[in-house]
Design a binder for these strands. Structure first.
Length: 563
RNA sequence: GUCCCAGUAGCUCAGCUGGAUAGAGCAACAGCCUUCUAAGCUGUGGGUCGGGAGUUCGAAUCUCUCCUGGGACGCCA
């Protein structure tokens, strides 16, 4: 089944005395061009061992090597041994595989049903759901779906930012300038304005910061007034967030945020003391993890907690409750140091499970090359962007396919798909310059392009009344179909790499390539022509449709059957 | 100042642990809808892979150094 292994075995018979199978496997590569075959073995390294030119070695290997029936041709070209596979056989194998497994194609059990917690999205209460949170949300969601596909049990945790000094600030701002009715009418907007105003005023009146600290201390101590304000702000914010999650169709297993760990941090202090890790420094308590990293601040000089404290409590709690083997934190790049410290403190505390902890950082969303700052009110609201995307998709439908049924549903799926894909297609760690026009683009390498390709495939299958048949004979595939077969073949590997690298963009790029080769095929081959090869073509189209739909699903994007 | 990330076509980016002629999309221009959805397909132009040195049979990819941009660097998260 694995073509590479066949090649390794053949090569091993000839080269076994100098190179073992593992090394051979690593050396084999995929040729750059289709004209160079399907598998390639470079002979340059062998030149040293055999003291002969790579060209000679390649020629000799190509002649002597065992050729299993699946190898249609073996040739030597400028130091490479290139293998051409039997196209019909390979095509038949893959298509049958997909016909049998359907959307299960590409499933693996590398996770062995182990638990993986994924901490993502995590917006801050009393602040709007910004474009920045979108990144964490869609990346985390895709990783959870990929984890599931790979046999893990994901636990989706929305670690809401609902605690900390910011609430002291907010309470002060509200008590000084706020009005209850205004907040009730438009909670997020009003609370944000209060937050922004606090920072403006605090520049000339530093005393405000002290007041804020005092109010947070009250809050942490259980003060009734502080608590009821906090709860009110929190409830209003969660309502707003729910709207966004509904638009994105993303859900969580837990909304336990920072506040949830308030009654668990004393235990953390206690354990740290028992292990003699806590040190006093300028009135605050710190853990010196090692000499390379700055000390990790655990308790402020006024006795209140910090996010590191709460993150320690959260990690310990999650291990107890979920017994994860892996635990991901999908949090921005700028917090890399924090997580390094966090993980090392947990290691110093003697928890062996610290090895499963992993920070999955991502680049920032920039505006004019600079970080967007909530404090200055420079912020773009996700909800508005999503609404705009949906509206634009609707306009496109009215223009291009006015007879479509369920226009609103499709417009929703396409608009949201465009925004999600735009975020997912690029490597996580790159900063993104915010561009609404790019985000709302529906042509070229976009989510709608993939959805459109899927809709075309679905449409043909419907028109031809195609029913998948596991036992269908697949024969004589068109020459133009070969590039499709190659991509279908590499779907399972792509899933694996995307998950293991915490990199959904690999899947996104794969889907683009698959869609491209399919659209090319679609343009030159009349699929529904009534000849003897029609069943083969339809099975191919079906395979593409299944993989596109499943791939999109794993990215958190819907694939409408028509658009 | 110290540490981390990045620098590839006008713009946005691919390029897996080094390999055969550096690829897409957008933008520009030129074509393709009496036949399966033109949100598509085909073609043209566009590059000293930030600069320099090194390792290697072979470097956009690895090492060093410099330049540029961004971020982090104890009582924010």
């Amino acid at each position: 089944m694995d073509y590479k292994t066949l090649f390794v075995n053949s090569l091993h018979q000839q080269l076994g005395e100098h190179v073992n199978k593992e090394e051979l496997e690593k050396m084999i590569e995929k040729p750059k061009r289709e004209s160079m075959g399907d598998l390639a073995f470079p002979c340059f390294e062998l030149a040293k061992i055999y003291r002969r030119s790579p060209k000679d070695i390649a020629h000799e290997l190509a002649q002597k090597i065992d050729t299993p029936p699946l190898f249609a041709e073996v040739e030597a070209v400028s130091g490479y041994v290139n293998v051409f596979l039997d196209k019909n056989q390979v095509a038949s194998d893959v298509i049958h595989d997909i016909l049998v497994k359907k959307e299960q194609y590409g499933n693996t059990n590398i996770g062995q049903n182990q638990v993986i917690t994924i901490d993502f999205s995590s917006p801050n209460i009393a602040k709007p759901f910004s474009m920045g949170h979108l990144r964490s949300t869609v990346i985390g969601n895709a990783l959870a779906l990929l984890a599931e596909k790979c046999g893990y049990q994901p636990v989706r945790i929305n670690h809401i930012g609902d605690w900390g000094t910011q609430f002291g600030k907010l309470i002060v701002a509200y008590k000084t300038w706020g009005a209850a009715d205004k907040v009730s009418q438009n909670p997020i907007k009003e609370l944000l304005e209060l937050y922004v105003r606090f920072h403006q005023e605090a520049e000339s009146a530093p005393e405000l910061n002290n007041q804020a600290k005092q109010w947070f201390k009250k809050l942490e101590g259980g003060d009734q007034e502080a608590l009821s304000l906090w709860k009110w702000f929190r409830d209003e914010s969660l309502k707003e967030f729910a709207k966004v999650y509904q638009l994105l169709d993303i859900s969580f297993d837990s909304y336990d945020g920072e506040a949830f760990y308030n009654d668990k941090i004393d235990n953390v202090y206690k354990t740290l003391e028992e292990k003699q890790l806590l040190e006093e420094s300028d009135g605050a308590m710190v853990v010196k993890v090692n000499n390379d990293l700055p000390p990790c601040l655990i308790k402020k000089n006024d006795g209140t907690s910090l996010y590191a404290t709460r993150d320690l409590a959260a990690a310990i709690y999650r291990q107890e409750r979920y017994q994860f083997t892996k635990s991901l934190y999908v949090v921005g790049n700028e917090q890399t140091l924090h997580f390094k410290q966090l993980f090392m403190v947990l290691e110093a505390m003697g928890y062996t499970w610290h090895q499963g902890l992993q920070h999955v950082p991502f680049g920032m969303l920039l505006q004019d090359g600079k970080k967007m700052s909530t404090r200055k009110g420079k912020i773009i609201l996700l909800e508005q962007v999503l609404e705009q995307a949906i509206e634009l998709a609707k306009n496109n439908i009215l223009k291009k396919n006015p007879s479509l049924v369920e226009k609103d549903k499709v417009a929703h799926e396409v608009g949201i798909g465009a925004v999600i894909f735009h975020d997912l297609k690029n490597f996580r760690l790159h900063d993104i310059e915010f561009s609404l026009t790019d985000m709302l683009r529906f042509e070229g390498e976009t989510g709608p392009y993939l959805q459109y390709t899927h809709a075309r495939a679905s449409s043909i299958l419907k028109k031809c009344h195609y029913q998948p048949d596991e036992n269908a004979a697949i024969h004589e595939i068109d020459a133009q179909a070969w590039s499709i077969i190659i991509y279908l073949l590499s779907f399972p590997d792509t899933i694996k790499y995307a998950f293991e690298g915490n990199d959904p963009s690999q899947l996104a790029k794969y889907l683009l390539e698959l869609a491209k080769v399919f659209n090319k095929y679609y343009a030159v081959v009349r699929i529904s022509d009534e000849d003897q090869k029609r069943p083969t073509r339809l099975a191919l189209v079906y395979s593409v449709q299944v993989v596109l739909k499943e791939g999109l699903r794993l990215l958190g994007i819907k694939a409408p059957a028509a658009m």
